[in-house]
C-alpha cells in the first residue's frame, strides 16, 4: 500500500513539474516552429526573481505572481531579440537552437554574477507536512499537484474558448493565412513566448520551494521537458501533458524498484524505443497544431 502511494504521489508531483515545463516548449514549437533552449533558464530566472522579491520583504503570495508576470516580459524580450529577427530564414530551427542556447548561457552566467553560486531556497507555497496512505508528504508538494492541473486547464480554456487563443492556434497552423485574416503574427509569437516563460518561471518557483536553487537548476528540467515532448509528440499541447505525467509515474516507479541511479538510463531506454517505434511521439497526430 505504501509503495503504491509513494509511486502515485511521486509520479503526480514530478509529472506536474514536467507538464508545466513541457507545455511551454510545445506552445513555442507549435506556434513558431522553433525549439527554445533557454526554457530551462526561464525556470531558473523565475525562481531567482521570486527569491529576490521575497528577500526584499514582499510576502510570498505577492512576490510569486509578480515574478511570473516579469517572466512573461522576459520571454517577450527574448523572442523579440533572438528569435523574431531570424524568422523567415530557411534553416531557422537550427539557428534558433543556437541563439536561444547562447541567450540562455548569458542569462545563466548573469544570474551567477548577480546572485552568486550559493544555494538558495524560497518559501514553500504552504508550509508543513502531512501523511497520506502511510507516506509523509509536504503540503507544498500537494499544493503543486493541485495547482498544476488547474493552470493547465486554464491554458486549455484560453486556447480553445477565447478569440485570442483561437488566433494563437491559427498561427500555429498557417502563418500566411493568419496574415491574410489580419492577425498580428509578431505579437502572437511574442505572446506564445511570454506564456511559455511564465509557466517555466512558475515551475521554477514550485521547485525552489522544496529544493535548493542554483543558477544551473534549469538544465535538468529542460532535458526532462525535451524528453517529455519527444515522447508525447510535439504537435499539440495535450500530448506533452499526458506524457509528462506518464514519465513522472515511470520515474517514480523506477526509482522505487531500481533506485535513483538506474532511473535516467531506463528513461532514455524507453525514449529510444519510442523513437524507433513511433518517431512522431505516442500521442501525436501528424500535423502541427495546438489543443
Amino acid at each position: 500500500m505504501s509503495a503504491l502511494a509513494e509511486i502515485l504521489f511521486g509520479g503526480l508531483f514530478q509529472g506536474s513539474l514536467y507538464a508545466m515545463m513541457a507545455v511551454g516548449l510545445a506552445l513555442v514549437w507549435t506556434t513558431i516552429g522553433v525549439f527554445n533552449f533557454s526554457h530551462g533558464v526561464f525556470m531558473m530566472l523565475g525562481a531567482y526573481i521570486a527569491w529576490q522579491l521575497v528577500e526584499l520583504g514582499l510576502p510570498a503570495m505577492i512576490a510569486f505572481p509578480i515574478a511570473v508576470v516579469v517572466m512573461a516580459g522576459v520571454g517577450w524580450i527574448l523572442q523579440a531579440s533572438v528569435v523574431r529577427p531570424l524568422i523567415g530564414r530557411p534553416n531557422i530551427v537550427l539557428v534558433v537552437v543556437i541563439t536561444t542556447l547562447a541567450a540562455g548561457s548569458l542569462i545563466e552566467n548573469g544570474a551567477l554574477t548577480i546572485w552568486g553560486p550559493r544555494s538558495k531556497q524560497i518559501p514553500a507555497l504552504i508550509a508543513g507536512n502531512t501523511t497520506i496512505g502511510g507516506v509523509g508528504v509536504s503540503l507544498h508538494q500537494i499544493a503543486i499537484i493541485v495547482i498544476t492541473p488547474l493552470i493547465l486547464a486554464a491554458l486549455w480554456m484560453f486556447l480553445n474558448r477565447t478569440r485570442l487563443g483561437l488566433a494563437l492556434r491559427a498561427v500555429a497552423q498557417n502563418e500566411d493565412a493568419s496574415h491574410l485574416v489580419g492577425l498580428n503574427v509578431t505579437a502572437l509569437y511574442g505572446l506564445a513566448f511570454a506564456i511559455a516563460a511564465s509557466l517555466a518561471g512558475l515551475a521554477g518557483i514550485f521547485m525552489g520551494g522544496y529544493r535548493f536553487m542554483s543558477p544551473v537548476m534549469g538544465s535538468d528540467p529542460l532535458l526532462k521537458a525535451l524528453i517529455v515532448v519527444v515522447f508525447g509528440g510535439i504537435s499539440s499541447i495535450s500530448g506533452p501533458i499526458f506524457a509528462a505525467y506518464l514519465i513522472g509515474f515511470f520515474e517514480a516507479a523506477c526509482s522505487y524498484y531500481f533506485g535513483l541511479y538506474w532511473t535516467p538510463a531506463l528513461l532514455f531506454g524507453v525514449l529510444i524505443l519510442t523513437l524507433m517505434v513511433r518517431p512522431e511521439g505516442i500521442f501525436a497526430s501528424r500535423s502541427r497544431g495546438l489543443a
Partner: peptide, 24 residues
C-alpha cells in the same frame, strides 16, 4: 486576399475559421 490552394487552417473547425475571418 483568398490565397491559392485552400490550405487554410486544417485543424480548425469551420466555425473557428469564420470567427478568425471577423478578427479585424
Amino acid at each position: 486576399h483568398v490565397p491559392q490552394g485552400n490550405r487554410l487552417f486544417p485543424d480548425l473547425s469551420i466555425a473557428d475559421c469564420m470567427a478568425l475571418g471577423a478578427y479585424s
